[in-house]
Amino acid sequence: MVKLTNEMKEGLRVPGKGGSLVYLATSSADGKPNIAAMRYVDTYKDDKILISDMFLLKTKTNLKENPECIIAICHPLDSGRDWVFKGKAIDFEYGFPPDFDWYGVTTKEILDEWGDWHQKEPPDEVPPDVVYSVPAQRGVVVLHVEEIYSIEKGKVGEKLQ
C-alpha cells in the first residue's frame, strides 16, 4: 500500500505554492497514449492525487474508458522530485452522485473542497500568454496511487513504493 511522503505532498501542489508542474498521462483502451501538463494539482489523504478537470479533452475520454493513469513531475525536474505516480483514476464530474466512492473518497468531499479551484488557488504565477482566459472547471480527476517509481537520472524505473 502506497503512502505519499511529506516531501511528495509538498511537491504535488500548485506551482504558485511551491509545488511542481506535472504531466498527466493516460491511454485509450486500445493503447493510444496521451500526455498533457497540468498546473492544478494537490493531494488528499495518503494515496490520492487530484487534478482539475478544466480543459481536459482526450484525457477525459481516455479515463472514461480506461482508468489506468500516471502523474509525473515535469518542472522543476532534477530537483529531488523525480517521481512517477501510477494507479487508477476517475474524473469526479459535477452531476455524479454525492456519495459515489472511488477507493475510499466520495464525489462530495472532493468537489466541496476542490470544485472551484480557480477561486481557491488563482493562477497568478502563470504567464499571461499561457493562462486560460475564463475558468471552465467540470470536475476533479482523482488518481488512486498504487505504485511510485523514480525518474531520477541513472535510476529511472526504480520502484520507490
Binding site: Y23, P33, I70
Partner: peptide, 16 residues
C-alpha cells in the same frame, strides 16, 4: 521530453 507509451491493453508507462 517526457514520453508516454502504453501496452496494447492501455496501461501507460512514462519515462524521461
Amino acid at each position: 521530453c517526457h514520453l508516454n507509451v502504453a501496452s496494447k491493453s492501455g496501461v501507460p508507462f512514462v519515462t524521461v
